[in-house]
Structure formats: structure tokens, C-alpha cells
Amino acid sequence: MRTIAATEIVKAVRDMCIHANHFQPADVRKCIKDGEAKEDSPTAKEVFRQLAENIDLAEKTALPLCQDTGLAVLFVSVGQDVHIDGNLTEAINEGVRKGYGEGFLRKSACHPFTRKNTGDNTPAVIHYDIVPGDKVRISLMAKGGGAENMSRVMMLAPAAGWEGVKEFVLKRVAESRSNPCPPILIGIGIGGTFEHSAKLAKLALMRKVDDVNPDPDLAAKETELLGLVNKLGIGPMGLGGKQTALSLKIEMTPCHIASLPLAVNIQCHSSRHEEVEL
């Protein structure tokens, strides 16, 4: 049994919160930097130019990429041969508290009805998974509200099939138009139950832009649907253009014979995530 001190978790989470909000991951960074050349309209080009400059500024200065530094969403895989010396959930929340406090990040967590801010961006949204081994893997996503608000879960009739999935996703993106700060990334969860599809959609957003689905059928579906999304012409900031979405990933699992759960999780271009293994 390997022991990991809770203080180590606190530090790792703190650092991830700060780093994620200043440095866009290399895959999305590349899409933004290459984006201007792929557009024809001057307005679309100008949006990409501003976003590229914004990335440089956030790297060079102390300013976060976006003022909405998100709710902290964490996927934590805990090896079954690891003993955490301390309270794991409390350590993660303490890491978020320190990261958002010491990193001058915006605290966006509030009471649903009174809207009173919790003051330290906790509680974080934490998903645990027990895995073989003696390591702890933590993936963090700083999830902004604007794009999250455009996300939906839909319990389709099984007969709707892939055509029904495509129609729902396309209509969702079309209705969202400029709201989620396109160019967007799209995470799709199919199957499982109501809540499981939503979790799968979020996990799909954790995949890199150039990651190819190991299931050839799903890989083909991802390419097909991304192509269709980009035919909508919404473009960067909804001002028209070729790049409405930079990536579309699908995670799928079996479901009940009566159901076809579908979750569409929308992520803005300010896709901020980090991963660490302890």
C-alpha cells in the first residue's frame, strides 16, 4: 500500500487551477493559432487574431485567459493500492480554494437561489473512479458558465437512432449560435442512464482535438457530425465562418432496451484542462 499525503493533493490541485487558466492546452492553442488562415471573411479572421493574441497575453502576463475562470470539475482515478493520508475530498477542495484565491481567479460558485457567492469557488465538482494500481490521476477542467448553459441531456426514443442523435446535436448547436463563444468543442455522451450520459459527455471533452476514437465506427461518426456542424456556418463568435466547432468527440456505453440517452456538453474555445499523476 502506497501512501500519498493529502497536502500533496492540495498542492497539485492548486497548481493545476492556476496553470489551466493561463495556458491553453497545446491542441486547442494550435487550432486557434491556425484558425485565421482557414477563414475567408475578415470578421472571422479578426476574431481568431484576437483570440491568438489573447493566448499570448495570458501566457506572458498574470491575466487569466478568460474572466470566467470556471467551476472546477475534477475526474479523479484513485488506485486501489493507494492510501490517502487525510481527507481526499477536503484536500481537493482546499487545492481549489488556494488556487482560485492565490491565483487571483474569479470565484463563480454561488447558492442556486440566493445567488450568494461561496467566496472561494468551492465546492468543486468531483467524479471519483477506483482503478487498479498505486497511483492517483487527477484531471481538472475549469468550466465556464456560458458554454455549459448551452448543454443539454435528452432521452431519445431508441428508434431515433444515429439520425436522431445527429438532428438533436445540430439543432442544439444551431440554437446556441453565438452564446457559447464559438469556435466550440463538443462532447457527446450516448447510452448508460440519464446522469451517466452527461458524465460521458464531459469525459469526451477531456479528449484531445487530434485524438482518434479507437472504435472505427465512432471515429467515423465523430468526423461526420463535426463536418455537419461546421456546415451550419455559425463561425467564430457567431459572426459567420467555416469553424463553428474545432472538435467533436463521442463516448458511448450500452443502455436500457427502452432508452437512448444523449448528452451534449458544449465547451467554448477557452478549453482549459490539466492532468497530473501522483
Binding site: L63, C66, Q67, T69, R106, G145, N179
Partner: peptide
């Protein structure tokens, strides 16, 4: 329409882009 991030020492304001 903006909810800026906190200002670092020496800055007047933090990151400050538009909200929906």
C-alpha cells in the same frame, strides 16, 4: 456585461471579457 477576475497587485482589474 462583465464579471472581471480579481486584479493582481499592480493591475487595475483582472481578465475582463464579455458574458452572455
Amino acid at each position: 456585461y462583465v464579471g472581471p477576475s480579481p486584479a493582481q497587485p499592480g493591475h487595475v482589474i483582472g481578465s475582463a471579457g464579455p458574458t452572455t
